[in-house]
Design a binder for these strands. Structure first.
Length: 424
RNA sequence: GGAGAAUUGGCAGAGUGGUCGAAUGCGGCAGUCUUGAAAACUGUUGAGGGUCACACCUCCGGGGGUUCGAAUCCCUCAUUCUCCGCCA
């Protein structure tokens, strides 16, 4: 969430920049400022009341010590009113803080200057494109047919076991997926990202910290029967980022770079139709994530580094891809700037999103209370960034479709050491 | 799941009703000494709110309570450790 002090000082600018998201935040911003003012007033009143009763308590202590119990009892009566007052003020203050926070939770991150204006994904700006789109043989098929033909992914079996959107990977399909995971993790660790394995369920505080709650409650699976505060992770970003929740890092501890492999669980309510066929949209899928905690001065350099890193992976996989800078209307709630990577699926004749790399600036760090001590000894919020490297099912779909030949599916060269076979 | 013990500042560890945001040690930072470093010595060293700056307020696992006053007493939840049970 945005910092109140920042809103206070850059009111007009915040409102103006939020219009890129096609929202008029002026009323909310005004309300934030009013609530904050009222909050501070109440805080001051409460502080004064407490100060008075503290000093009386000290007097009482001193009187008892010198044996003047009757004088002490007189003072005791004075504190009754103060106690009532402070109790009331405290309640008012809590209400005010809650109202302020609830409002702040509703305000999305301020888009970066380079974010294009626009409403839908059609307004996203293509900033890079690379890789030859292969010419396929006349009998080329979409992946959902290929996987059936070669018996490497079984959607019906997954439906039997769990439900639609929970595929079973079999034989060489399972091996290829495992190969991709290992390859991604190796690339990421070679680039300096520390590998971590994290819980696949998170508590409320964690989901709140990265911004899944309160806004996206319905999109997460909820383990409520066991513990109402437990959710299945929609992305490894949630547990991995929360490693740093509440931390106060030293200047020298920055940057932090992590990579993690996790399954991801998403409700995806009401998603049916051609665009969600096969591997295109699932309730459970695997993903390798990269994540950085950065000094504010370096975060956009870091974002470029992450983009370049993912480029490198796609170049090695020899997949045709493009990079989009998301427009204001398509930008995620918590993000200031996001680049999406899309692989061209030749057989489906469309682009598939396989990675999303974002700079959240201080938006998550503020909720997480993730700070560092700068060179002057001042405490500042860190910037957090993350990206997929990569989302497995769609990379898999891209490989199956782009690498298909009339007598089988080729395996990208870099993966052969991992799969142990070169053709399906 | 059952029984017992514990949770204090970056770490270790004192503190059982007032003068405790908290002794002491280690670590960190600055200085003295040194050609430099080490050692030694001296000083300094938690966070949040608030203020132009002070003052002041809050925080000793979380929440609630008792009291004029709580790190200290009570309730409750969480976590950790030990023993038992169960188990990949």
């Amino acid at each position: 969430m945005l910092q109140v002090a920042f809103i206070r000082e850059h009111k007009e600018d915040v409102i103006k920049r939020l219009t890129k998201r096609n929202i008029d935040a002026s009323q909310m911003i005004e309300e934030v400022i009013t609530l904050d003012e009222e909050r501070r007033q109440l805080q001051t009143q409460l502080d004064n009341t407490l100060a008075e009763s503290n000093s009386i308590s000290k007097e009482i202590g001193a009187l008892y010590k010198s044996g003047k119990a009757s004088e002490a009892n007189v003072l005791k009566e004075k504190t009754t009113q103060l106690k009532d007052d402070s109790k009331t003020l405290n309640e008012q203050l809590n209400d005010k803080e809650e109202a302020l926070n609830n409002l702040l939770y509703k305000i999305p991150n301020v888009p970066h200057i380079s974010v294009p204006t626009g409403n839908t994904d059609e307004d996203n700006e293509e900033v890079f494109r690379e890789g030859a789109i292969p010419t396929l043989h006349p009998n080329a098929k979409p992946h959902w047919e290929l996987v059936k033909e070669y018996d490497i992914i079984d959607f019906e079996l997954g439906t039997k076991i769990a439900g639609a959107g929970f595929p079973v990977y079999k034989g060489k399909g399972a091996k290829l997926q495992r190969a991709l995971i290992a390859y991604f993790l190796d690339k990421n660790t070679a680039a300096g990202y520390n590998e971590v394995q994290v819980p696949h369920l998170v508590n409320e505080a964690s989901a709140l910290g990265t911004g899944q709650l309160p806004d996206k409650d319905g999109q997460m699976y909820h383990a409520a029967n066991v513990d109402p505060s437990l959710y299945l992770i929609p992305t490894g970003e949630v547990p991995a980022t929360n490693i740093y929740r509440g931390d106060l890092l030293t200047n020298t501890q920055l940057p932090q770079a992590l990579t993690t492999y996790t399954p991801c669980f998403r409700v995806e309510a009401g998603s049916y139709g051609a665009h969600v066929r096969g591997l295109n949209r699932l309730h459970q899928f695997d993903k390798v994530e990269i994540l950085r905690v950065e000094h504010p001065d370096r975060s956009y350099t870091a974002l470029d580094e992450m983009v370049n890193h993912i480029k490198g992976i796609l170049q090695e996989l020899k997949l045709p891809y493009r990079i989009l800078r998301l427009c204001g209307g398509d930008l995620g709630f918590t993000s200031a700037l996001t680049y999406d990577f899309e692989v061209f699926s030749t057989a489906q004749d469309r682009w598939l999103e396989i990675s999303s790399v974002s700079n959240f600036e201080t938006f998550q760090a503020n909720r997480l209370k993730l700070r560092f001590k700068n060179q002057d000894g001042k405490i500042q919020l860190c910037h957090t960034l993350n990206g997929s490297s990569l989302a497995l099912p769609r990379v898999l779909a891209g490989i199956l479709e782009n690498y298909q030949t009339e007598d089988g599916i080729q395996i990208p060269e870099v993966l052969i050491p991992y799969t142990g076979f070169n053709k399906i």
